[in-house]
């Protein structure tokens, strides 16, 4: 019969603790297998600039809201869903409502390193650190691909002629290597639903 007296109970606790401590110190990287809550929602979320990899980000962020308060553009929002504990209250950007203006303020106030420190907002520095996603053009609904000429996304892009190139009739072509995924093009798109939108890096390549 399974008897659980005090000594055995303490012994069991000790065993569990040692196992977890060993796993804690043996692997420096967060293990994917235990990440139950975090991997529940695999939908792509646009994080603030210079964010570290998503599975590490949700563990590193302490949801202190400093990035949102430092943002002069009010574009950083917080996920309001208390029933998904890993994702709740973490910052995200909804480019259609407001794109990121790449001022790098949020990276300079982040206390945890969830957003890597970016020293300035020069073009080369931004290209080096920031990859929020990649803008993907839907040629079916884009006005410039459908017998009209628009070109708003090219004007809105902070890396115009580098990240987005205008073809004949101002047709936008995104250069995947240079696009940082700020989402200003998606905010500016005059068609609805938006013809250009920020997607994850894997989706854009595949």
């Amino acid at each position: 019969m399974f008897l659980l007296n005090r000594r055995r109970f303490l012994n069991n606790i000790w065993q569990v603790l040692t196992i977890t401590l060993i796993s804690f110190f043996s692997s420096n990287k967060p293990s994917e297998a235990f990440n139950l809550f975090a991997s529940k929602d695999k939908k792509f979320i646009v994080r603030p600039p210079a964010a570290i990899a998503e599975n590490v980000f949700i563990k590193t962020c302490i949801s202190c809201h400093l990035c949102g308060q430092a943002c002069p553009n009010d574009c950083i929002k917080y996920i309001d869903d208390p029933f998904s504990p890993g994702l709740n209250d973490t910052p995200y950007i909804k480019p259609r409502e407001k794109g990121c203006i790449l001022c790098m303020k949020c990276t300079q106030v982040c206390p945890t390193g969830a957003l890597r420190y970016v020293p300035n907002d020069e073009g080369d520095t931004i290209q080096k650190y920031v990859k929020m996603g990649i803008a993907v053009v839907d040629k079916n609904i884009c006005k410039s691909y459908n017998k009209q000429s628009c070109g708003v996304c090219i004007r809105a892009c902070p890396f115009a002629d580098v990240a987005i190139i205008a073809e004949t009739w101002e047709r936008p072509v995104v250069i995947n290597e240079k696009c940082v995924g700020c989402g200003l093009c998606e905010q500016a798109c005059i068609h609805f639903p938006q013809a250009i939108r920020v997607k994850s890096v894997s989706v854009a390549h595949g």
Binding site: P72, N73, K94, R96, E97, K98, G99, I101, L102, C103, M104, K105, Q108, P119, N120, D121, V152, R155, A156, P158, L184, Q187, A188, C189, I190, F192, P193, Q194
Partner: peptide, 24 residues
């Protein structure tokens, strides 16, 4: 160091400035 403050935005003819409603 922390940089000086500035605000940038969209071109004046972009969607958010001319049309206040955006389909979000």
């Amino acid at each position: 160091t922390v940089e000086a403050h500035h605000v940038r935005g969209l071109p004046h003819y972009a969607y958010a400035e001319n049309y206040q409603e955006t389909a979000t």
